[in-house]
């Protein structure tokens, strides 16, 4: 079997690397999430002195955590599939189906979502929007910015998956 073109391998390596590293960074947000809430619980129940910031901090970290982790999860093949037909198909067929799905299901919607969620963030940024349900009233736009950022990361990883599936469709082998 012919070796895969080096530019293809390099492109995949770079795209996968971005997702891998984003996951390695974002994953650790779990620690401040846990710690700020543990601090809050201690301050509230032991010292009767609740903080104004801990809940908002935790909830904004939580939302950013799972959104920004979506690309890493795609790279790790962690997004569940209904695989009972898929798993019995030949590699070529799997690659073909995946490639078609990425082109039809994945890129158009997420590209449009990138634009719209960027606008969602930008309007919030221009207003200096704050979270009104909180006594702390923190600014909300950095949190809203994670939506377009997460979508961008997903699109990059999706491109890597598309390259892999096209290669699989043509050569009958997963990279």
């Amino acid at each position: 079997m012919a070796t895969p073109p080096p530019t293809l391998l390099k492109a995949i390596r770079i795209l996968d690397g971005v997702s891998l590293w984003s996951g390695k960074i974002v994953g650790w947000l779990i620690l401040p999430m846990v710690l700020s809430l543990v601090y809050e619980v201690g301050a509230r129940y032991l010292f009767n002195a609740p903080t104004v910031w801990a809940y908002d901090m935790t909830f904004m970290l939580y939302g950013s955590f799972f959104m920004l982790g979506a690309a890493y999860t795609l790279y790790r093949k962690g997004h569940i599939r209904t695989d009972f037909f898929y798993m019995n198909w030949s590699v070529r067929r799997q690659g073909l189906v995946d490639a078609v799905c990425y082109v039809l299901f994945f890129f158009p919607g997420l590209t449009a979502f990138l634009v719209v969620s960027w606008d969602f963030f930008w309007v919030s940024f221009e207003r200096g929007e704050r979270i009104v349900t909180s006594p702390w009233m923190p600014i909300v736009y950095p949190f809203k910015a994670t939506m377009p950022l997460a979508t961008l990361l997903l699109l990059l990883q999706g491109f890597s998956e598309l390259l892999k599936s096209v290669y699989a469709a043509l050569r009958g082998e997963w990279l």
């Binding site: 599939r81 209904t82 299901f105 158009p108 997420l110 449009a112």
Partner: peptide
């Protein structure tokens, strides 16, 4: 049943 990740399938159909 196509076997594409379910989250993206849901999003695509809804979109």
């Amino acid at each position: 049943f196509i076997g594409f990740p379910i989250a993206f399938t849901l999003i695509a159909v809804a979109l």
